[in-house]
Amino acid sequence: MGPSGSGTTAAAAGAWRPSPRELERRAARRRQGRRRLLLASLSTLVVLGALVAVVVTSPGWPRVRETFFSPYHARESFPAIVDGFWLNVKLFVLCQPAILVLGLLVALARGTHSPWMAPLRLLAVVFTDVLRGIPTLLLVLLLGFGMPALELQGLTNDRYVWAGVALVLSYSAYVAEVFRAGIESVHPSQIASARALGLGHVRTLRHVVVPQAVRRIVPPLLNDFVSLQKDTALVSAVGVFDAVFTAQDYGLYNFNFTPLVVVSAFFVVMTVPLARLTDWLQRRVVERERAGGVA
């Protein structure tokens, strides 16, 4: 049974050098990697080329290019769109934390158990059912035009603000459900062991359940926030000069829709970094939790 002790030199630990076979394998893996890269680039080129060819050879292309891809109108509308887009960005940056907080509160309210919290529970259920049920556009219109019409003392009449409130309400209802799913996915044994350590309900949530839940719901939350970034465009419905309203305004005035394409590019550019950031955060968490956990 003994492998004839040949060749297996008991090299001192630390002085290890890859064997010729291992070097060969590494070279082979590098070759494989290069071949995969080449294939990936080639197939991408072919597919993209075909798509472009279909669009460019279509009969209406010259006119479409004129009305949607005019460099002149892109340049002309650019400064106004940048100004308008700033409003979208501000709206997103202000709404996002508000949504996270409100969404978490609603989710926690639904998860309460004590009897005197019953009204809060009921309110949370109604909140999610109603606000998730109303199309976001309608909510923006209702609040954007309705609230200023009430002429309430001490409240702003700015339609931009009310449109923001509408977004917060609508998205909080979504995010609350995401939070709730995350909280419910934490295994009961985790709650049991926190209880066994003597932690109360609130501390258990705060230190054990919510941190684990948040980790799991980062991808769906990101999904909702990308969606929110785009839905900031809905404020254009109540006549706020955001990027979309500015582009429409320009387009109708000049009979050219290039600014709409420009705005689309703006939105894409805004959402991509957030997606990459979340990927990176996720990976870091996974690596940290796995490190040292190897038996």
């Binding site: 049974m1 003994g2 492998p3 002790g5 060749g7 297996t8 008991a10 290890w16 064997s19």
Partner: peptide, 25 residues
């Protein structure tokens, strides 16, 4: 130091199902 001692049976000349050599991880 690593020399695994022969188990007293060396008649098996057939190719082993599994042969591991110099494995490092």
């Amino acid at each position: 130091m690593s020399a695994p001692d022969a188990g007293g049976e060396s008649t098996r000349d057939r190719e082993p199902v599994l042969r591991v050599r110099g494995l490092r991880k």
